[in-house]
Deep mutational scan, measured.
Amino acid sequence: DEEIEKWIETLLKRNISLRVNGKDLEIGSEEFKEWVEKFIKEV
Rank of each mutant, 00 (worst) to 15 (best):
residue 33 K to G: 02
residue 26 E to V: 13
residue 16 I to E: 03
residue 23 K to F: 09
residue 19 R to I: 07
residue 3 E to G: 08
residue 43 V to T: 07
residue 8 I to K: 01
residue 21 N to S: 05
residue 1 D to W: 14
residue 4 I to C: 15
residue 24 D to R: 10
residue 42 E to S: 12
residue 13 K to M: 12
residue 6 K to H: 09
residue 29 S to A: 05
residue 6 K to P: 02
residue 14 R to D: 05
residue 8 I to W: 08
residue 10 T to W: 15
residue 33 K to Q: 07
residue 30 E to S: 08
residue 14 R to L: 14
residue 26 E to S: 08
residue 12 L to N: 03
residue 43 V to P: 04
residue 31 E to H: 06
residue 16 I to K: 06
residue 17 S to F: 08
residue 38 K to M: 09
residue 23 K to Y: 12
residue 10 T to L: 13
residue 14 R to S: 08
residue 5 E to K: 14
residue 11 L to H: 01
residue 4 I to V: 07
residue 13 K to W: 11
residue 10 T to K: 09
residue 34 E to T: 14
residue 5 E to D: 11
residue 2 E to D: 12
residue 8 I to M: 06
residue 10 T to I: 14
residue 14 R to M: 13
residue 38 K to A: 09
residue 13 K to A: 09
residue 38 K to N: 06
residue 38 K to Q: 10
residue 23 K to I: 11
residue 23 K to M: 08
residue 27 I to K: 04
residue 18 L to N: 00
residue 30 E to Q: 13
residue 20 V to T: 04
residue 33 K to F: 14
residue 22 G to T: 02
residue 26 E to L: 11
residue 21 N to K: 08
residue 35 W to Y: 05
residue 21 N to W: 06
residue 41 K to M: 07
residue 7 W to T: 01
residue 19 R to Y: 06
residue 29 S to Q: 06
residue 31 E to V: 06
residue 22 G to I: 07
residue 35 W to P: 00
residue 14 R to W: 13
residue 16 I to G: 10
residue 9 E to T: 09
residue 35 W to C: 08
residue 25 L to H: 04
residue 28 G to Y: 05
residue 6 K to I: 08
residue 18 L to I: 10
residue 41 K to H: 05
residue 18 L to M: 05
residue 43 V to Y: 15
residue 24 D to H: 08
residue 25 L to G: 04
residue 18 L to H: 01
residue 22 G to P: 02
residue 28 G to R: 04
residue 3 E to P: 07
residue 4 I to N: 02
residue 23 K to L: 07
residue 8 I to E: 01
residue 20 V to C: 15
residue 21 N to F: 10
residue 42 E to A: 13
residue 22 G to M: 08
residue 33 K to I: 10
residue 21 N to D: 06
residue 7 W to L: 06
residue 41 K to F: 06
residue 20 V to P: 02
residue 32 F to P: 00
residue 24 D to T: 11
residue 15 N to A: 15
residue 32 F to H: 01
residue 30 E to I: 12
residue 31 E to K: 12
residue 37 E to N: 13
residue 41 K to L: 06
residue 24 D to Q: 12
residue 36 V to D: 00
residue 15 N to L: 15
residue 24 D to P: 13
residue 42 E to Q: 11
residue 29 S to P: 05
residue 22 G to F: 06
residue 11 L to C: 09
residue 26 E to W: 09
residue 28 G to K: 03
residue 8 I to D: 00
